[in-house]
Every structure is written in structure tokens, then in C-alpha cells.
Amino acid sequence: MSKNGPVALIFHTLFVIFMLAPIVVVCLVAFTPEGFLSLPVNGFSLRWFRAIASYPEFINAFWVSLWLGAASSLIALFFAIPAALAIARYQFPGRDALSALFLSPLMIPHVVLGIAFLRFFTQAGIGGTFTALIIAHVILVFPFALRLTLAAATGMNRSVEMAAISLGAGSWTLFRRVTLPLILPGVVSGWALAFIQSFDEVTMTIFLAAPGTETLPVRMFLYVQDNIDPLVTSVSACVIAITMAALILLDRIYGLDRVLAGHSDRSR
């Protein structure tokens, strides 16, 4: 493979600095010993991480985000797995339209989704509840759950299933013993990617969250709107650390390139 020249490497270095700078800055400022925003030039301190403990809003918001992400991703899979199997295997009229519908939450701006859900849930009388948040997030993460499950189902060797049928497996046994285990890496990655999407989402959620059901990104956003201080940087640093951990885990299970490939075809 041909090597990059010096100009290319300088460009690459600047690019990587550009990509990492804001993230590194947040993590560095989080360790400042000062009471104001500054780089930790006079030594590192964990005081702002300890300070998180005395702000229960952030702790609560973290738990809301965690449960919301876990539950909505799981529920989305219950709907996405059968749909993915149907789309992967059958040619039927309206198949393309149906996949477009299922992937539409990617294309609809989140602010529009937020407004539509706010109106809908308010009319339905469940505005601001955790249930409403879960339903909204199921829709939000559905495309990610569908995409990765679909990729796994499409890549599967169909004759393996035929073999199981010829050996006498009924449809439920076939799904439980053969199909599901074989698409499981895709399903798990779909769950993980869906979880991260839900965990990070702010634009749609901000319309739906009420005090008590605020997610962590929403809480952070509202906090930043008022004032930026080292506390929110330490919270952000924690979020970044959690995401990194999830990222590495995802890479190990499934290969990050495959996960992100499911991420890119947003416009289709």
C-alpha cells in the first residue's frame, strides 16, 4: 500500500487535532483545581467530580438516561427483529416503502419528532411521563436496531435454516435454536448502538422531558444554557468515558466499522 507524503501527514495531524481538541479540552478542564473554567495548569484535582455527588439532578438524570436507553432499545428490538426477518427474506409489494417508513426516524429532524410527540402525548394525556419518553425513544432508535438486525439476517446462509427444517424443527424452534443465535451478534450490536443513540439524544427529548424525567443530555444542555462552569465539564467527561467504554465493547463484539456502516446510510 502506498504511503502518504509529508503534506498529507501534516493535514492528517491537523485534522486529528481538530477532531480531538474539543473532547480533550472538556476532559482536561474537568480536572481543574480552580473554581472557574481553566486548564489544570496548577495540578490536577478531582474536586469537580466529587461535586457531581452534591447535585442530585445530574445523578437522577443519569439513571433516567440509563433505564430509558436500556428499555427503549430492548423494546425496539422486539418490533425490529420480526420486521428485519420479513424484509430480509421476502419480496413483497410495498417492501421498499415499508423499509423507508421504518427508517424514517433517521430522516425526520429530531426537532420535528420532538414537536410531534409533544403534541401527541399531551393530547393522549401522558405528556412528560417516563412511559411517553420510552415510546418516543423506541421510535428514535428503531432504525438502528432494524439496520443491524437486517444486515445480520441478510448475511445469513439460508440453507442452515433449511437444514434445521429438514431435520424436523418447527418455526418457533427454528427461530430460538438456529435463527436467533446466528443473528445474535447483529442483534446485540443493534441494541448497543440503539442504547448509545438513546443515551445521547437531546433535541427530541428536550421537548418531552419534564422535571423528574430529564435525561442526562437534557439536564446538561439546560445547565449549559444558564452557565458554563467546571461542574458540567466533569459530567461531560464522565459521559465521554462511558461512551468510550461502550465503543470499545462494541468494537470487540461486532467490529466498529460494521456498526458505523449501519449508521451512515441516513439519507436512504
Binding site: 492528517h12 485534522f15 486529528v16 477532531m19 480531538l20 481538541a21 474539543p22 473532547i23 480533550v24 479540552v25 472538556v26 478542564v29 473554567l37 448509545i196 443515551f199 445521547d200 437531546v202 442526562l216 443530555p217 446538561m220 444542555f221 449549559v224 458554563i228 458540567v232 465539564t233 461531560s236 459521559v239 465521554i240 461512551t243 468510550m244 461502550a246 465503543l247 468494537d251 466498529l256 466499522d257 458505523l260 449508521h263
Partner: peptide
């Protein structure tokens, strides 16, 4: 490694990333 570094931020909260720019 660099693919991970460049694509990884995709999954980090937009609020955290934008906060970084606000600091910069």
C-alpha cells in the same frame, strides 16, 4: 486506530462535544 479516533466522536453526546467548542 485513526478511524476509531475520527469516527468515535459520532457516538459521544453532542452536548459534550459542543461544550468543548464553547470552552475553546
Amino acid at each position: 486506530i485513526f478511524l476509531l479516533i475520527i469516527l468515535g466522536p459520532l457516538l459521544i453526546s453532542v452536548v459534550a462535544r459542543t461544550l468543548g467548542w464553547a470552552l475553546l
